[in-house]
């Protein structure tokens, strides 16, 4: 079996998701020996480009050059994977009113959200792709891992915690340090914005404040669903 040809690209973003791969220090040699790396501008100046089996794209589309690169990569790739919340949901660039998730322009075969993405999920996604499978999806909200860690519920305590609306997989990192979830991984599979807004309204929060908080990372999704309440 020939090694899969991989390309890693960044659009408008902080490059933090690409950095997660570079930070996989113990596994980096194994990764590099298992793939044919055709493009990774952040790591090397030797980028032969050409046809790809899998392209990983970080960042939101905010400008013409983003769109140009994205379309070019899509044309050359069998699979395109969105990495990071900006690419998956629009993330922070969405707040500027110009950034959109890459799925608004091209077909995305798999999404790996996170701000930044989790190393463990990146490596497991890479392993699956090298093997010829699509990676597993994590269908649960942050609350699953939060409850398993036996954290007290911050939402119950009256904080604006986005955990029940947010895709899990981070090990409930923030609530485990007694900080409410900011929703940086973007919406879960089944976010009930109306229920969350109702709970927070009972705790005395202004609906607009809640919407602003929920919209910080979830881009297109929260504005569509969250605004129905009010």
């Amino acid at each position: 079996m020939s090694k899969p040809r991989i390309g890693i690209y960044g659009l408008t973003s902080c490059a933090g998701d690409q950095l997660v791969l570079l930070n996989c220090e113990d596994e980096l040699l194994d990764v590099l020996s298992a793939v044919d790396l055709r493009s990774f501008v952040m790591a090397t100046s030797q980028n032969p480009e050409g046809e790809l089996d899998v392209a990983f794209v970080e960042g939101a589309v905010t400008q013409d050059s983003d769109l140009e690169l994205l379309r070019d990569v899509r044309t050359r790739s069998k699979l395109l994977i969105a990495i990071g919340t900006c690419a998956v949901w629009g993330g922070i660039p969405y707040l500027s009113g110009r950034g959109v998730p890459i799925s608004q322009h091209v077909k995305v075969d798999y999404s790996l959200p996170g701000c930044p993405i989790e190393k463990k999920q990146l490596l497991s996604a890479l392993s699956s792709l090298i093997h010829g499978d699509l990676p597993l999806k994590l269908p649960y909200p942050v609350c699953l891992e939060c409850t398993i860690r036996e954290n007290s519920c911050l939402l119950q305590a009256g904080e604006i915690c986005c955990g029940p609306l947010t895709a899990g997989g981070c090990g409930a990192r923030c609530p485990s340090h007694n900080r409410p979830c900011l929703g940086c991984r973007g919406p879960s599979l089944d976010p009930n914005y109306q229920a969350a807004t109702k709970i927070l309204a009972k705790h005395g929060y202004d609906v607009e404040d809640v919407h602003r908080k929920l919209a910080l990372f979830s881009g297109t999704n929260s504005s569509k669903e969250g605004r129905q309440v009010g």
């Binding site: 298992a34 909200p141 699953l144 609306l165 089944d190 009930n192 229920a195 109702k198 709970i199």
Partner: peptide, 29 residues
């Protein structure tokens, strides 16, 4: 309508026993 489907009731239930099974291949394939 009020349920967040967060799963906290299931995790904390002493008799909820459902689990998912999944395979994860390593980098060596």
């Amino acid at each position: 309508q009020d349920c967040l489907a967060c799963g906290r009731c299931s995790m904390s239930c002493p008799t909820c026993y459902c689990f998912s099974i999944y395979d994860q291949v390593n980098l060596d394939s």
